[in-house]
Design a protein around this nucleic acid. Structure first.
Length: 590
RNA sequence: GUCCUUGUACCUCAGUAGGAUAGAGGGUCCGCCUCCUAAGCGGAAUGCCGGCGGUUCGACUCCGCCCAAGGACGCCA
């Protein structure tokens, strides 16, 4: 069915050809002055310059040739007007807009074209590395961002017809495991321990090994040595450490699945650092043999500098001078593992932005070392930190790491309070369930509506105040629409023979709806779900104005009423489609 | 020290083909429920777009320098 704006551009290009103008000039942009125009042509200045003409003359000339353009037999513009220094102002015909909206209405994909027609890249499969949870440790607030953004990107790609592979990339190896294993032994808990036990045991063991000078706690060096030994035994696949570790892993993954499910986040694979433990050694040996890694100060490194580098690019260490591997090794081995097991065109790492140099080194090392099969795109979605109201990294009230669970519980309680205070008729719906949906939406939307790269200030009250660009505002919009549908016992059959009514707000809604495909593409290109949030926020805003000014159920003219309802249906479908991408559930009432 | 990111209203932030008069939300003030959910709608006020210079018809946007904040910088993950 195609994108209306693209189609208009194409028609303008044809018209330009007739007057010997290069088609690269033929594009319209959203107007900066909405009172004057919907769209505008800015290229008159460039044309004027190239042809040494007056921009205003060019604008007039262009206006003349596109004035009577038709699309599918319908007049495209209600107004084509050259303006002041040299713009062309355009108002699009409502009839044409609504004709396209009807197509969207009847299209399962809401007017979003096939991948092949809308994307000009060759990406068929994307592997997303997101989540990054640690085994035996509770999720903290830092895990919220990467999980929620990663999930949204994954669903966006699926929506556009791209295959995805989601891997959580667990932190399930290394000294932390040795510490937990030894502590479990000391507490005689090997036979039965739960996730709650583990959550207590890790910090305990860590403190014991490291000590804390500020609290006058001496490090227990004997324990620390045992933990190191234990870690080594685990690496060598010895017992009983390996069995204990497996048990820890099972319990943790089971719990993680539950936690993530609450956020509507799920992974295709729960691989981790341990997945590649046995391939790291041989891989490095091979690097050395082939000369891609060389000795430097007793360690083995891969040079990843490039001639074009402006910045310092330290070599990537793949084997320490004591012979042990380290995190770069594991990340490169992970790339190798993925290359060997999947057919991937693009890798996306949704990971804290502080890892950016490290990941760049690993990506380059992987290329240089030849672990890649063919050309691959690597992208680090460098996620910013979630800060507290003081602008510093978010902490719990007592100053420690803020557990995600605590945050969610707090949000739920607040949502429940508000629901109770409003005291609306919820029918036979479960109030806890509604509170849960609202609070999760508030948290997720609060996060997703910020650009991933930026640090943002977490403000529970702001997210739950339900005003402005928030999750609850969007949900409220849908609940209002739903309520109308219920009142008129709407069966989903749209009678679209209705006449078009148009006014400013309806016109804005038209314009917004036809941009849907472009908005998805923009989010795709910028790796940024906040683009989608902004869009549904504006659409919700428009709807609420419309709702305020027009009586829908009360409209006596049936034709008009049907037209209004058709608008509600498209708005409802689009917002729900986006919330599906953002993985946010919608309550029936609130 | 080197490099990266950021600097837009009182606060939190949008703003990429360089375009007209720089936008939202919160907060503040003023209005709107005999009517489809007021978690809503409408209106008002608020700006040396960090600073200086350059490129040009035109710069929040591109280039250079400077200032400020945060972050990363070979054997921790």
């Amino acid at each position: 069915m195609g994108n209306l704006i693209k189609k208009i551009n194409t028609e303008i290009a044809k018209a330009f050809k007739d007057i010997h103008l290069d088609e690269s000039y033929a594009y319209i942009s959203i107007s900066g002055l909405p009172e004057l125009a919907d769209y505008q042509i800015n290229s008159c200045f460039n044309i004027a310059k190239a042809q040494k003409k007056n921009p205003m003359d060019v604008a007039s000339e262009i206006s003349d040739v596109i004035k009577d353009l038709t699309i599918d037999g319908t007049k495209a513009f209600l107004k084509v007007e050259p303006s002041k220094p040299g713009f062309v102002n355009l108002k699009i015909n409502d009839e044409l807009l609504y004709a396209y909206i009807k197509k969207i209405l009847n299209d399962d994909k809401l007017g979003v074209g096939d991948k092949e027609t809308i994307l000009n890249d060759n990406i068929k499969t994307i592997l997303l590395d997101y989540g990054g949870a640690n085994v035996a440790k509770p999720l903290h607030v830092g895990h919220l961002r990467v999980a929620v953004i990663g999930e949204a990107l994954k669903r966006l790609y699926n929506r556009l017809g791209i295959k995805t592979i989601g891997d959580i990339h667990l932190g399930d190896y290394g000294l932390q495991m040795g510490l937990v294993i030894e502590e479990l032994k000391d507490e005689d808990m090997l036979d039965s321990f739960t996730i709650s036990d583990l959550e207590i045991i890790y910090p305990k063991a860590s403190l014991r090994a490291k000590g804390d000078p500020s609290k006058n706690i001496e490090p227990d060096t004997q324990f620390s040595n045992r933990a190191h030994e234990s870690t080594k035994r685990l690496q060598d696949n010895l017992e009983p450490e390996t069995s204990i570790w497996k048990k820890i892993l099972d319990i943790s993954i089971e719990d993680l699945k539950k936690r993530y499910a609450e956020l509507n986040v799920s992974f295709d694979y729960y691989y981790g650092e341990s997945t590649v433990k046995d391939i790291m050694g041989p891989m490095v040996d091979d690097f050395i043999k082939r000369g891609v890694a060389h000795e430097s100060n007793g360690a083995y490194v891969i040079d990843v500098k490039e001639d074009t580098d402006k910045k310092e690019m330290p070599p990537c260490i793949v084997r320490k001078s004591d012979g042990a591997v380290l995190y770069a090794t594991s990340d490169i081995a992970t790339i190798k593992f993925r290359e060997d097991n999947f057919d991937v065109d693009e890798y996306i790492y949704v990971v804290d932005k502080r890892q950016s140099l490290h990941l760049e080194q690993c990506f380059r090392a992987a290329k240089i070392a030849g672990v890649l099969k063919g050309d691959k795109v690597f992208k680090h979605v460098a996620v910013g930190t979630m800060n507290g109201m003081d602008g510093k990294p978010f902490k719990s009230r007592d100053g420690g790491v803020a557990k995600l669970e605590t945050l969610i519980t707090e949000a739920k309680n607040k949502a429940r309070e508000i629901l109770k205070a409003n005291d609306r008729d919820m029918g036979n719906l479960n109030i806890d369930d509604i509170a849960s949906k609202i609070s999760i939406a508030a948290l997720k939307y609060g996060d997703l509506s910020n650009s991933p790269t930026r640090d943002y200030i977490f403000n529970m009250d702001k997210f739950l105040s339900f005003e402005g660009n928030t999750g609850p505002y969007i949900l409220y919009t849908l609940v209002r629409i739903r309520s109308i549908f219920e009142k008129i016992s709407f069966d989903g059959n749209i009678d679209e023979t209705g006449e078009i009514v148009s006014d400013d707000i309806i016109h804005d809604i038209f314009l917004k709806i036809i941009r849907y495909e472009d908005v998805l593409l923009e989010a795709y290109k910028s790796y940024d779900p906040s683009v989608l949030c902004k869009y549904i926020y504006e659409l919700s805003n428009d709807f609420n104005s419309f709702y305020h000014d027009h009586s829908i159920i009360g409209e006596e003219n049936l034709q008009k009423r049907n037209f209004y309802i058709s608008l509600l249906v498209v708005i409802d479908k689009i917002i729900r489609d986006v919330l599906g991408i953002l993985a946010i559930d919608v309550p029936e009432r609130m």
